[in-house]
Design a protein around this nucleic acid. Structure first.
Lengths: 233, 233
DNA sequence: TAGTGGTCTAGACCACGGC
DNA sequence: CCGTGGTCTAGACCACTAT
């Protein structure tokens, strides 16, 4: 209860973290209120609030008015994953980047996309296939459907110079989206692109993005054999 | 420049978001300083600071002392992924959960884990294999190496009642870790577990966690054919 | 050196939700 | 009802860094 030296919210944050990890504050237990902690640390309540808010956003404590702050029973560990532009992902590995447009056409929206791309049947979308290289080795195969209505100027872009990936990120800001990871067996086409045996297990990412109302783009990216998507906790 | 009605940081946050999305603040451009915005919105600088801090944490703007606040050139989209306990992941799907311990033994740390599990060669680790079921259908195969030194009481746990997954989350808090996703072909053993053809592409997650100094556990989880790991943006 | 963001303060009011 | 967290204020000092 004696006044601590530390005045910054970071110090308080770290100290509270320690108390949670060391079970000084047991899982599920009620921890002291903001005023009490402010008194203990000898700082303003605002400062304690900042520290507790960070803990709350990290999921380590649960806060409710009147009920107080409790240590989360089993902290839902969260990982943040930054979704890179493929060119940057390649260059980050110290490799040179290049991409090739395999195919491009305007066609009706394929029905199998379904809820992943909720556009009235019969609407035209831009379909693109591309292969991205890292140091001249195939890195990821990309298959994309883009809503022509939500991406003005799309038809005038020279996609041999800038990848669809990169152009859309810079020119079609989205308000929402979802993403899923899964594994697929290489078919004949993919086996040819990646120069691997058919049936090789490949890591795949599906991503849909939309503006407030309409879908923007749906993309499937299939990575070269052995690729890992890493993240830190 | 006229005073706005909105006083809350959320209103300011939304308004600034709109200006960025609508290119009122162009990518790379310098946006007004905190004092100027505070004057415009008719609120305290602290409130503007809060709104800008959220934008900064989301990666939409870059802030530097003296240099001011700039709109990020190409916003690095981030997704947060919550790492569930397998039982919760199953029950969230409305399925019943069950798990079976396939094997358990103490053995020297396998060298192929390498940097993923930095323990002196020759140290003993607990090796476990388990199969998790959703509605009596195999859901995920788990293969785990756990450092006996950092998990006291591990040997006394009845892992047929609580999964290693769950016990470790609740009893071995970690300070750091990493995770990677990839795809593997089913070998004979996995094909038998999942009742699928050999070579089927399976989605796999590797995860290592450590305390301040020593590694705690390394786990590989291989999901049933067709599994997708979803997240929203 | 001067301007910008980062933080802290002491106080205040309000919203929510156990009691 | 009333205690708790959520937020806002007006002011202050400091840290960093472009110029």
């Amino acid at each position: 209860m004696t006044a601590k030296e530390a005045k910054s919210w970071l110090h308080i944050h770290k100290e509270l973290l320690r108390r949670i990890r060391d079970r000084d504050y047991a899982p599920g237990a009620l921890i002291p209120g903001e005023v009490e902690l402010a008194a203990e640390f000898g700082c303003a309540r605002t400062t304690v609030n900042r520290a507790l808010r960070e803990l709350s956003e990290a999921g380590l404590v649960t806060r409710r008015r009147r009920a107080g702050t409790r240590v989360a029973v089993n902290p839902p560990h969260k990982a943040t994953l930054t979704i890179p532009i493929i060119r940057e992902e390649v260059e980050l590995r110290g490799a040179s980047y290049r991409h090739v447009v395999i195919g491009q056409s305007v066609r009706p929206v394929p029905p199998q996309l379904g809820a992943a791309f909720p556009l009235p049947a019969g609407c035209d979308v831009l379909y693109q296939q591309a292969l991205h290289y890292a140091d001249e080795r195939p890195f990821v195969y990309e298959e994309r459907h883009t809503n022509l209505a939500t991406a003005p100027g799309l038809k005038d872009v020279d996609f041999t110079r800038i990848s669809a990936n990169e152009w859309l990120v810079q020119n079609a800001p989205f308000t929402g989206g979802d993403m899923s990871f899964h594994a697929v067996n290489a078919d004949a086409e993919l086996a040819r692109y990646f120069e691997c045996p058919p049936e090789t297990a490949l890591f795949a990412v599906d991503r849909s993005t939309w503006d407030t109302t309409a879908p923007i783009t749906h993309v499937r990216m299939i990575y070269a054999p052995g690729h890992r998507m890493r993240m830190s906790l």
